[in-house]
């Protein structure tokens, strides 16, 4: 239990995907203009990360390891994630229209999100068992959502602030990202 909790903290804060591992930077700047869409995107990422991690863990230990072809994991994982996102999108679309309106448009974006692929690799690299894999995927997703939400909150305020003309928009967002990165450095010694 202790171990699981520390894995969660490590994935969410210490090794934050965006600010420490530099994964998923595209949505970090692309979908962080509005808080509501950032949170929707974050929740979609959590769901996909969870599903992708479980499936890829099973495939890795049931298929790749027994046959000794672990170096094929990149191709297999990408294949699995892409089709998983597709299945998820169809399922949500057919069963819950409101959820689809909230999440649906972000799901195709996640198909090619390196953060999702990253978490599956980290899980097998660290030789996590299934429970640890689930916790680490959830932690990574929560960390990603947290940073996206913080960033979008700041950017919403920044729109109203009197920013020098040359810095308006993306440049000042980069500066904010830097400061956020420094802030998250403080979690460094925790785990």
């Amino acid at each position: 239990m202790d171990n699981l909790f520390s894995i969660f903290i490590m994935m969410a804060l210490v090794n934050n995907f965006v600010l420490a591992k530099f994964l998923g930077l595209c949505p970090f700047f692309g979908v962080s203009k509005k808080l509501s869409s950032a949170v929707s995107m974050g929740i979609a990422v959590i769901v996909v990360m969870f599903a992708a991690s479980v499936v890829s863990w099973l495939l890795f230990y049931q298929l790749l390891v027994p046959f000794g072809i672990t170096y094929m994991r990149t191709a297999i994982f990408i294949l699995v994630i892409a089709s998983l996102v597709q299945i998820l999108e169809i399922t949500i679309r057919r069963t819950n229209v409101n959820l689809y309106n909230a999440l649906g448009i972000y799901l195709p974006l996640i198909t090619t999100n390196c953060a999702v692929l990253g978490v599956t690799f980290i899980n097998v690299d660290q030789a996590f068992n299934l429970a640890e894999t689930i916790v680490s995927a959830l932690g990574a997703g929560v960390g990603f959502t947290l940073v996206l939400a913080i960033m979008s909150g700041i950017r919403e305020k920044l729109d109203l602030a009197d920013v020098p003309k040359a810095f308006k928009g993306i440049p000042v967002a980069f500066l904010v990202a830097m400061l956020l990165g420094i802030a998250f450095l403080a979690f460094g010694g925790m785990v």
């Binding site: 790749l64 094929m72 297999i76 699995v80 892409a82 089709s83 299945i87 679309r93 057919r94 229209v97």
Partner: peptide
């Protein structure tokens, strides 16, 4: 292995597509 995984994914998508109820007409 790649073929099998690919086929598995394809069949899974097909099954989901085939057996889930039709999507909302309004959507």
């Amino acid at each position: 292995s790649l073929t099998l995984v690919g086929m598995g994914c394809g069949i899974a998508i097909f099954l989901v597509n085939r057996f889930l109820p039709e999507e909302d007409k309004l959507l």
